[in-house]
Computed example of a mutant assay.
Amino acid sequence: MTNDKITIIGIAGGTGSGKTTVVKKIVEALPPHHVAVVPLDSYYNDTSHMTEEERRTINFDHPDAFDWKLLIKQINELREGKAIEQPTYSYLKCNREKETIHVEPKPVIIVEGIMTLLNKRLRDMMDLRIFVDCDPDERLIRNIQRDTIDRGRTVSMVVDRYLKVLKPMHEQFIEPTKRFAHVIIPEGGDNLKGINMVCKYIESIVEK
């Protein structure tokens, strides 16, 4: 598979905006086994050299928390038709796992994450850039639901983190990347009409 047959799509937006829903709908709209999804969350820096206490102090909603060099390298490899070993990350350990995920190049590569449109080198590789927009209150509710169930946090912990970290980081780093998007999906993952329009557009790109 050569790079002229591979479409790179970037999907960004605040935590809890509904990016996963958008990705799911795009995958469902395209032929089976047509899409490879590369989550930005898999590319947090390796912190094996740090103590557990030091890891707990990391701001994982800051651009410096990500291994951009590795992500860009692996997206380039997929675009060149080469398979990659995608890292995996544990939110409970705040570190990478030893296991990796084997990812084969596909006609469509989706890079999804809060700051997917932040890095210019990565952004310039994309054929389509999408920003999933969502009301802050709705995102907070989704964060509470997700983190209390999946990440073992209490409601007060989630709200405190949202006010001290997520909200200011969103306003400083994520919200400004909206201007780089070709398409903005308002109302987040609840906007099925907007998502379906994007899916139709992507289908037309891939057909070409």
Score class of each variant (00 low, 15 high):
Thr154Gln: 11
Asp137Arg: 07
Glu77Pro: 00
Asp160Trp: 03
Thr47Pro: 00
Lys164Met: 05
Pro39Arg: 09
Lys19Pro: 09
Ser204Gln: 07
Lys19His: 08
Pro31Trp: 09
Leu78Arg: 09
Val158Arg: 11
Asp190Pro: 00
Pro105Tyr: 06
Glu99Cys: 06
Phe131Val: 02
Ile114Asn: 02
Val103Ala: 11
Ile11Tyr: 03
Asp64Ala: 10
Arg179Gln: 14
Ile11Ser: 02
Arg153Trp: 07
Pro105Asp: 06
Arg142Phe: 06
Met115Arg: 02
Met1Trp: 10
Pro63Arg: 07
Phe60Thr: 06
Val37Trp: 09
Pro32Phe: 09
Gly18Ser: 06
Asp64Asn: 12
Val183Leu: 03
Val22Leu: 08
Ala29Ser: 15
Met169Ile: 02
Gly18Asp: 03
Ala181Glu: 04
His34Trp: 08
Ile9Val: 15
Gln86Ile: 03
Gly18Thr: 02
Pro87His: 08
Ile185Ser: 04
Val111Phe: 06
Leu70His: 02
His49Ala: 13
Arg146Ala: 03
Glu175Cys: 00
Cys199Ala: 15
Asp190Gln: 12
His62Glu: 12
Gly81Cys: 09
Glu54Met: 05
Ala12Ile: 04
Phe60Val: 07
Val159Arg: 08
Asp147Gln: 09
Glu28Thr: 08
Val159Ile: 15
Glu99Gly: 02
Val132Leu: 08
Trp68Gly: 01
Gly14Met: 04
Ile84His: 12
Glu77Gly: 00
Ile114Phe: 07
Ile8Asp: 01
Leu70Pro: 04
Thr57Ser: 13
Thr88Pro: 09
Asp190Cys: 00
Val165Glu: 14
Val183Asp: 02
Glu207Asp: 13
Pro107Ser: 07
Leu92His: 14
Cys199Thr: 10
Ser204Lys: 10
Pro176Trp: 12
Ile6Asp: 11
Thr148Arg: 05
Tyr43Val: 11
His182Arg: 01
His34Glu: 14
Met125Leu: 15
Glu187Asn: 15
Asp147Phe: 05
Ile110Met: 01
Pro63Asp: 11
Gln74Lys: 00
Glu77Asn: 07
Ile8Lys: 04
